[in-house]
Design a protein around this nucleic acid. Sequence first.
DNA 1: AAAAAGGTGTTACCAATGTAACACCTTTGG
DNA 2: CCAAAGGTGTTACATTGGTAACACCTTTTT
Lengths: 225, 225
Amino acid sequence: MNDYLELIKQAALTNSIESEEITLYISEGSFKINTYLKNNIVHFVGETCSKLEIILGGKVTIERIDESGNLMTIAEFLSGEILGGNLLFSKNPHYPMTITAKQPTVILEINKDRLFQLFSDNHEFLKSYLEFVSDHATILGDRIKHYVNKTIRESVMCYLDYERRKQNSNNIRLEITKKALAEKIGVQRTSLSRELAKMRNEGLIKFDAESIEILTCDDIVKTVS
Amino acid sequence: MNDYLELIKQAALTNSIESEEITLYISEGSFKINTYLKNNIVHFVGETCSKLEIILGGKVTIERIDESGNLMTIAEFLSGEILGGNLLFSKNPHYPMTITAKQPTVILEINKDRLFQLFSDNHEFLKSYLEFVSDHATILGDRIKHYVNKTIRESVMCYLDYERRKQNSNNIRLEITKKALAEKIGVQRTSLSRELAKMRNEGLIKFDAESIEILTCDDIVKTVS
DNA sequence: AAAAAGGTGTTACCAATGTAACACCTTTGG
DNA sequence: CCAAAGGTGTTACATTGGTAACACCTTTTT
């Protein structure tokens, strides 16, 4: 249990709460720790959201399955991020999509009443909470923009640009499979494959199963406005 | 000025604030009233958001113009709704898209510090605020789902279903022009026109310049899941 | 009333992308 | 080590929807 306390103190949202308080809240049940294994479902689509959750470790994704059974990853949340922040106080507090753990995941659950109490007692906490919720909402907004990015090439460029900065190299190691990448950007695997082949023909990239090398940065800068 | 006070007392978010307080806030400048004419720009894309705004009357829309100059209406906000609620406390508080008044519009502007103070002083207000922000975020979420609705037919079905319920009739009077409808669902006018023609050929609808009549409800129910 | 502006309907053409089918790898589990 | 499962690359085909061009209306402006 103490290692959980440590994790809670590390999370940006909860680090302004005293350890003794945390212990108290856990013992009285208004804070709770849940653990999930890989591919466990954290929340089903339509489930009522009645608690705020903070990811203490691991990774969850929000996925959408359309009528034809195609999978699309809408968002990915890692340690320190919150779930349900936008839902909890909403008039229609139902998870709009299924949330799944993609790795062994530890989640802290905060009861709604306790949360509201924390807002009143701890202005620092309220400030962090608002910041988190706001950032999430803008992430969702970006996501819209991202989907308005309609061509596959644009989506690929976005991804490459992001990874290029992250890995600080033009030779990008693929941390996920191409199949997963296709799901991430919401296109067919074969269409992604085709577009990558086109980009190779045009001399923009080189690639194999494990990596993509960017040959001309100019176009990326142009495309990713 | 008194008529504004009246409007402020009517808005769901602010109706828990006492009239005297409101008057005080206005006189000290932490509340401010702004008015806009039709097609005035309320906020430019990229502008920093430093205040919360409440629409007291009129209508604003959030529009996106893509590289090719095509217009798409992302959202529409009416009296009582708030602007900037998701931005204000965000780390990157810039309006992601331009906000335009579509009618003569009156907006109440609340200073960030005053807002935070109100959260502390008035828990009812905090609750309403959280509810508003949450609902907005979920609206944005729906909007994603809406854009994932990729075929024009699906978007049209959605619109027809919505209007059918609203007007309580299968013979739907078009309150907006077809051009505007095309912008609303983010497609070319001609493509919408073509799709409507197809649906007419298939015996699903009849239409003219002012109305669309739904002939078979079944498909709508099937399409709009 | 004449002219200009803007909405509407239609169609030929084309680019983007989903679908399906297949061959070929690599990884995993018995 | 072998077989099954799952990722990868490729291509022919069909559909969707954007573009452009035009004719026809209605509304607004002068």
